[in-house]
Amino acid sequence: MTVISVKHVSKNYSRIAALTDLTFKIEENVITGIVGRNGAGKTTLLKMIAGFQKTTKGELRVFNENPFRSLLVSANSIYIDDAMSYPGSMKLHELFDEFNRFYANWNEELAVRLMEYFSIPLNTRHRFLSKGKRSTFNAIVGIAARCPLTIFDEPTTGMDTAARNDFYRALLKDYIAFPRTILLSSHYIDEMKDVLENLLVIHRKRIRYHGSVSDLQEAHVSLRGSSEQLSGATLGKNIVSKTTRGLQDEWIVENDFSDAERAELNRQGITNTSVSLNDAYLALTEQLRGGIDDVFNA
């Protein structure tokens, strides 16, 4: 079943384009990572899906409804970010009580156990927590709400490494027990890549890639050798990025090499290895072109 369907959706903020002509579908119970550089439009997309903001153009459907003004979407989705609004007058356990009243699948027991694990007292207020603990609390809410559509917009901001790992593990365990559609956004693809099935890369306000994590990784290959060697070997190939690593050049190239071509690479002593997901992503979003060097070379 398709949970989110996006057709030619654009979003402008007073005439300035935030997202341009997006089209994609997200199927039920898939964990999708939303990645992109700062200002790529990740948050805007997630807020439109959550029904907080309206589209400027195009058709957006969540559970077969326009999410903006939809009670169905609100009742079956939760949006977690680092600017969650809670009434300042309420203590954390009172906030839990409210979640329990509003969300049908809310699991209070799980929420309380997670709070104990992360040593967050229930009788304090959200604003008194440290930044990391605040994010952890929000993340706990997102997991325990068990919403059919769960949206995390940069949930790990401020968390330490241990808390990040614990969060992704807790999310995955609860997902295995209660599968749901999850959208996760982050600047750091590495920390969340293992729990993802699919990846949606937004670049320059458009979709740059949507598909499985491993496909993206396998669609690229890293070649190492001298630049003369590499330019000879990559004739007619689509070069995604060129970096100098010490005395060698590393080029990330779209992976459409035949077995014969691969053998030829080996013969020439060009190292060809698979790329990490992060490198594939960085290459795709033009973060590996050595752009910052150009600033100083001008």
């Binding site: 964990i31 295995i176 729990v195 994590v213």
Partner: peptide, 17 residues
């Protein structure tokens, strides 16, 4: 695939693959 997913903290679909 679910045991593998838990064991390695990876997506069950990846484990299935």
């Amino acid at each position: 695939q679910y045991q593998l997913a838990e064991l390695f903290t990876i997506n069950p679909a990846t484990a299935g693959k």
